[in-house]
Design a protein around this nucleic acid. Sequence first.
DNA 1: CTTTCTAGGCAAGGGTCCTGCCTAGAATTG
DNA 2: CAATTCTAGGCAGGACCCTTGCCTAGAAAG
Lengths: 388, 388
Amino acid sequence: MDPAKPSLELLRSLTDQHVLRALMQHRRLTRAELAAETGISKPTVGESVRRLTEAGVVVDTGERTPGGRGRGRVGSYYALAADAGTALAVSIAPEGIVAECVDAYGDTVSRAEQKIGRPARPQEVAAALRTAVAEARHSAGPTPHLAVVSAADPVHRTTGRMVQLPDSPFLLGELDPVEILAAHVDGPVTVDNDVNWAAQAERNNAGATTLTDFAYVFLGEGLGCAIVSDGEVRRGRTGLAGELAHLVTVGPSGQATRLIEVFGELGLRQSDSTAIDVDRLLAAATGTDPRALATRHALGQAVSGILAALGALADPEVVIVGGPWGSHPAILDTIAAAATQLPRHVPVRAAELMVEPSLTGARSDALNRLRAVIVAAAIGYSPPTPAS
Amino acid sequence: MDPAKPSLELLRSLTDQHVLRALMQHRRLTRAELAAETGISKPTVGESVRRLTEAGVVVDTGERTPGGRGRGRVGSYYALAADAGTALAVSIAPEGIVAECVDAYGDTVSRAEQKIGRPARPQEVAAALRTAVAEARHSAGPTPHLAVVSAADPVHRTTGRMVQLPDSPFLLGELDPVEILAAHVDGPVTVDNDVNWAAQAERNNAGATTLTDFAYVFLGEGLGCAIVSDGEVRRGRTGLAGELAHLVTVGPSGQATRLIEVFGELGLRQSDSTAIDVDRLLAAATGTDPRALATRHALGQAVSGILAALGALADPEVVIVGGPWGSHPAILDTIAAAATQLPRHVPVRAAELMVEPSLTGARSDALNRLRAVIVAAAIGYSPPTPAS
DNA sequence: CTTTCTAGGCAAGGGTCCTGCCTAGAATTG
DNA sequence: CAATTCTAGGCAGGACCCTTGCCTAGAAAG
């Protein structure tokens, strides 16, 4: 049954939820401000504050006088209890591991980084992950309520494990972040691909006109893609939507070729792995000599096949291109030029977020989940949670 | 603010909503049965029934005696008022137009069909549409509350108009179903592509294990595809997700080719339009002679490119193939065989629903919307409606 | 010192839901 | 046929929630 069963308990929990969310957004408020903010009457807000204070979720901050705002009676500022808890946002990438603790206000209260060697050995990555998380936790109070992990490899949707796909670079190796973090976290561990998180960050970044339907193509050592439909990242059945390696596209000499093989034919793959050699690619495809021009053109043609597929299957408002070589101006221009040749035009633009985009996306998801957890714990009633 | 504001009105509307939805599902119930069904107490249900009866939404059917169910006191059966209203479900296809009125119980209370000539002339189609709808309305009481339309052409998401795309067959022509039906309907007109509706019907049909992530590929005169992600059809920004004509795939001699051009190279397109000649295709691609085998193989290769793109971008649990030539056993076998050659395996199966699949999907959506409209009209409070 | 103004609390009222009990009326049973 | 059993519906009482309106405490302004 979709609509919740009516009960007075439901009403009360709704009130508490409004109060809590207002406090999360505004940090500290008096009862009167809470009433104005939520639209709920003063006595009801007062009751809710009393309940939440008794439950230990909300505390009187001790701050009083509204500081010359008006001449009336002083009010008491209330805020979330200091032990409301935190959430862990973690980024696992070949460049290193970053672990952050965020609180319910969205503040990053601690941060730890760990380098990892190349090529990464799973054991080493797991150890570095544990170290980074332990370090981040150390300066951030008790066990976090949950973790959100961004990983630079394909992630299985239901298990959260990293999976090796044929012809895809496997940068970090067989890793089970859920198992590794279970000991450090007091709740669920959500894992997803770094490109998906970057896309979410880009969506949130899009200011007034929120993007609801777009694609984010990441062109680096690996070839990834996130598809946002109706405002959400769509991951597919197993979470592997957006793994582009085997998409059929235009090869260097016009033959139908799997995308990953294009790079083999152009001699741009790393010798020892399935990854693309970004340095060699940039060296070979940028510049003004005819050879570079030809390589660039071949890349543009190959990518235009991705764009055609995205246009046909996802109908995005825009395709955002990111990644070390995808965002290179010369290459991006070539891609954009190829896009205009498509029968159905697909706008292309560069990613706007450049600093830790995937961590940004994971962090914002961690914040949403943390707030939901705190609200759910404080009130008896549990509303539907976003899909993991 | 996401959660609804707490108020006693909200509680009451929730109660009424439960009662109404129970009546929609079970046609007629006594107060006691309603209480048992909804889990709400008898006095509360009694109050709700009194309110809804006074509002004219619910009526005492006059039926009394529970007919030997027990020995107790006789109960009064209540049901939705007869004038609760209907919704219109319309299918517009080259084979003809079908218009149905469904009531809140999901019963089809009237049905009208209209043939249209080939090739279809927009004026003629519009006239046939008006006739069919008028006929369906005639035997079904007052003006329907809304209409849901399935159209065998690309449909623009925000306007509901049919749009002509380059290289796509345009079977029905520039038509504006929203404008045409506005006079016949007392509310919103929802229009979508026939393949999308067929996919929804297939999803609902999937019995116990509801499909949440799959793709439906339609291979007929036109080439269409519906992508269902997280349980919903994803239409993209303009509603044109799934228009496969320009997807890059494997051509007959291995070159990268837009899907629609494959049929040109094989000589399987109708001479006067951009549509595929299904009869010629079936004649050329079925049978055991080497030539048919080669054609079938070429088609299989081309379709396998679609499957690769779907696997890469949508990660479906299964790809359902339908349409006049896609569901032909010999061709489907070839497609399935080609699918097993893909690096990432994509299961393929034939569509299960064969009779009016798109009308079935549109009808079930019309029912959902009708119920929501009736509930929203009966209670003051309006819950979030599904995206159009 | 008086006035003005605001945060918070109190009281009353109206609504909603629930539990528990009662009644009417029909079928079953002795 | 009369007593018993059983059920739909209604009533009373109580608990709870939200709101409006009013009051009080206390600080700033005049």
